[in-house]
Design a protein around this nucleic acid. Structure first.
Lengths: 344, 344
DNA sequence: ACATTTCATGGAACCGGTTCCAGCGACGGC
DNA sequence: GCCGTCGCTGGAACCGGTTCCATGAAATGT
């Protein structure tokens, strides 16, 4: 493989000049630059980023830690981040780490601890203190998506408020028998998403004078469409547990519930109102009312924040703060007022 | 940041010895090794992969080119590849390039052409000759998923055969009014997936003595669930175009069709049989009969092939061959024989 | 006309590892 | 007892760029 020394020789200049000509830094006469570029083209020279990184300390590469790739929210975030990074001339190395595990430790020690990246973005992963310390020691900026991490700038939505908004929408339509169906506390890997949404639900209900805790007003399920479908069949199949409205913790769950309801012959929204959270592309075809959370914006903002910090490192070592992105209610026709009692 | 020279000094040995002790290559006495490791631990030494790559020529990193992240097939492939690579001590840098574009050129010239990777995997991307040449010139192995690329080992399923299998299943149940709903030739980015599946459909139909071409037996739609839903409403809504069975080019399309059918009050499978291709996790909840294609196996095999070639480079420059992975029919209850004519 | 800048270039050090080679003591074979 | 081999270590070259510094020529200022 040809090195920059070969280019320099062919162009009849010094290595230093060739480097300046090709990188565009420092003074080079127009004529010399042309000669060098021509020489480089002639022998098919391509620069070694490794060699450059070694001396500049910059790799033009960002590491990303993410617990899932195939779930909607995460793949959207990923796509938008990849796009934004590429636009800025960075590439993205992906670590798919579902849970704290020996493997995750290995990745931190082996890949992340080394100076492979100019910065790291952590999506929906609650980093341990040790992990944050490790990353901080590298002197590389770190931003998070999804929840507060000690000493780290994080982009997130307000899950409690979004859940409250969803619940209040149902309340405002006149519902009182409302159930929340969402992820269980146990498999809570992405910060407190599950419990925050439950908290928001309880808070809105209590505020409306309803006392949801303890009664059968929350059902846990897998955070997927089949997950929602299964509890849907179970919960709606039993007339005693059937509410007039459901707040699902995600659109996928909500859609699973709608499919289950339809199979059981339950009319949505006449017999059952359903609201979700996400703004999933399928929401429209199921006419699902939902709280949109715009993952692509979150991804894009994370990248921009990281790169900004790369340009001008913040003076303070730690820069913990939370950027809360707005969510918004989109009303379709999966929600309406409850059907009036038969005798009315 | 501490370098290996610092470790060596602290341990009272030469750089060379420290390097050998830490990397495990070459002769080092047990005692020296302990001393060096202890010194490294003490000052929190982490090796610079850049410096190592510079001299060894190995980066322990694989580049992946993929047109989508959020679509099921691709995210599954991605997850499995990431897993397999991590197991082998490699990491994965992702380039999400939907279509040939100036941007894609930039990525090839700027990122891929450089020696950042030990190898490259191209998923569902029909590389141009120039692109393949560029990658080949680096002397780095390249494997593909999804279709033949000149001079490249590729993992794929047989789309024609899978489509034939799906169609024959419907034929064997006694259907004759069969329609294929799939991607259009126009937005065909992933090799000839769309047209191959159409070809397989036509082939099986002709073999059964039915002449599908020209008649309204193919409808194009977006390769998503909403895409299937929309054509479903259009095609099934009109009694004249309504077939007794549909072969959908993907499970997502198939599910969209089923949802549309249910909304129109059409019984699946009594009034309409539906079969898809994929083995999507939602298939079960919609009781969808489908041809499973196991993307995770494809991803895993691609990684293993690439790493194998990395270990022992094939003597011949070009190593074009196709590994065809099997698909299999999973019968659920979205397919049955056609309802007998009213008078029967 | 002379003192400053500014522009252009080359030489050399440097980034942080790996590896080749030489040297040396200990040990086994003959 | 001598030689060859093995095990271990250090010195130095090297990977392929970037950048600091020195030097000199040309342009600019007064």
């Amino acid at each position: 493989m040809s090195a920059i020394a070969d280019v320099a020789r062919l162009a009849g200049v010094a290595k230093a000049t060739a480097s300046r000509a090709l990188s565009g830094r420092g003074y080079v006469s127009e004529e010399t630059r042309r000669k060098v570029i021509e020489a480089a083209r002639e022998i098919g020279y391509v620069a070694s980023p490794n060699a450059a990184s070694l001396v500049t300390g910059r790799t033009k590469s960002i590491g990303v830690i993410i617990p899932f790739i195939s779930r909607w929210f995460f793949s959207e975030v990923l796509e938008s981040m990849e796009q934004a990074l590429l636009d800025e001339g960075y590439d993205m190395t992906l670590y798919n780490l579902p849970a704290p595990s020996p493997e995750r430790e290995r990745v931190f020690d082996y890949f992340l601890a080394r100076k492979r990246f100019d910065g790291v973005i952590s999506v929906g992963v609650a980093l341990s203190d040790d992990e944050v310390t490790l990353l901080h020691r590298l002197g590389r900026p770190l931003v998070g998506i999804g929840g507060p991490i000690r000493g780290v700038h994080t982009i997130a939505i307000d899950d409690v408020a979004s859940a409250r908004l969803a619940t209040k929408h149902l309340l405002s339509l006149g519902h009182t028998e409302i159930v929340h169906i969402g992820g269980s506390k146990e498999d809570e890997m992405d910060f407190q998403v599950h419990s925050n949404r439950l908290t928001g639900f309880y808070s809105a209900m209590r505020e409306a004078g309803l006392l949801p805790e303890g009664s059968g007003s929350f059902y846990a399920c897998e955070f997927t469409m089949p997950g929602g479908y299964e509890v849907g069949l179970a919960v709606f199949g039993d007339p005693r547990t059937r509410p007039t409205a459901v707040f699902a913790a995600s659109d996928e769950i909500a859609i699973g519930l709608i499919v289950a309801a339809r199979e059981l012959g339950i009319q949505v929204p006449a017999d059952l109102s359903v609201i979700g959270i996400d703004g999933h592309p399928y929401a429209d075809m199921f006419r699902l009312t939902t709280i949109e959370q715009h993952p692509r914006r979150q991804g894009r903002l994370a990248v921009l924040s990281l790169l900004a910090e790369l340009e001008t490192p913040t003076p303070g070592e730690e820069d913990e703060h939370l950027t809360v992105l707005p969510t918004n209610l989109v009303i379709r026709s999966s929600t309406s007022g409850p059907r009036p009692p038969h005798g009315a």
